[in-house]
């Protein structure tokens, strides 16, 4: 029976789709049979990020409408035989998602895959609820800036209210992924540090991903950063994926904390 992860955020543009793509590839690299589903109906993007946009024939709305079955709509990745992808439609609107049909789809996926990632749309409408309903865990993607953190708190507050698992008295895992950390700004105390974000949101840290210009290049070419061996963000996603697969990996030192130097240490004494 597979494990379902909903990848959510309050605010848009924080890197949900990038995270979904990279973690799906990462867990597939770890040998888990993985599927990643784009739930952002009407704004499909995951296909581009994965470089699979030319392979989409059927999407999730065709499954909802009964025009295609799951095996017809699933797209197998060329590079990794463990990785499959289910696209969102670019045209139809969110109302095609019906709760019973979504449940049926997710049950099917759980039977056939080890790891199921649901790339949620931003905010709290439509597709977001569908990804929460049947998720075993949620991964909340946040950037170290005020609006993203505030909106994340709002969605975290909604998870238990919307989750079937929570209603049945079980615990839904809530994990935080801090994306786009700028070590220089952290060093200068001009960006909110991880510990402070965890203080405010009180959720479990899953991982930290540094700002990395290669993410743009990766989306340009449809080759996610986790496949770029020299990319810092890619390395972080690799480690987070291993963590998701149960490996005990120490947290990424993206903030470069020890490089304070002698003056920093002396200053520390006088605080």
């Amino acid at each position: 029976m597979g494990i379902v992860f909903a990848v959510i955020s309050g605010k848009g543009g924080v890197g949900k789709t990038t995270t979904s793509a990279n973690l799906a590839i990462g867990t597939a690299m770890e040998g888990k049979k993985t599927v990643v589903v784009d739930f952002d109906i009407g704004q499909r993007n995951l296909d581009m990020i994965l470089g699979l946009e030319n392979r989409v024939v059927y999407d999730i709305t065709h499954i909802m409408d009964g025009e295609a079955n799951l095996s017809q709509a699933l797209i197998k990745d060329k590079k990794n035989e463990n990785l499959y992808f289910l696209a969102a439609s670019q045209t139809k609107d969110k109302s095609v998602l019906e709760r019973d049909k979504v449940k049926h789809l997710i049950d099917d996926l759980k039977e056939n895959f080890d790891y199921i990632f649901l790339d949620s749309p931003a905010g709290i409408e439509g597709g977001f609820e569908h990804t929460i309903h049947y998720a075993d865990n949620v991964i909340v993607v946040v950037n170290p800036e005020v609006s993203s953190i505030r909106d994340a708190d709002r969605v975290i507050g909604l998870v238990d209210a919307k989750s079937h698992k929570a209603k049945a008295g079980e615990t839904v895992g809530k994990f935080l992924l801090i994306n786009r950390i700028d070590p220089e700004l952290i060093e200068k105390n001009e960006m909110i540090a991880t510990d402070d974000i965890l203080d405010i949101l009180s959720v479990t840290l899953l991982g930290k991903v540094p700002e990395d210009k290669r993410v743009i290049d990766a989306s340009n070419t449809g080759k996610p950063v986790i496949l770029h061996k020299e990319s810092e963000a890619g390395k972080a996603y690799r480690r987070i994926s291993k963590r998701l697969c149960g490996e005990d990996v120490p947290f990424e030192d993206v903030e470069n904390a020890p490089s304070k130097g002698i003056m920093g240490k002396i200053k520390g004494l006088f605080k």
Partner: peptide, 17 residues
Amino acid sequence: KSAGVAKDRLMIAIAAD
């Protein structure tokens, strides 16, 4: 430093939310 300001503002805003 602005990171501290951000944390203080967030704590208040989120408590109200």
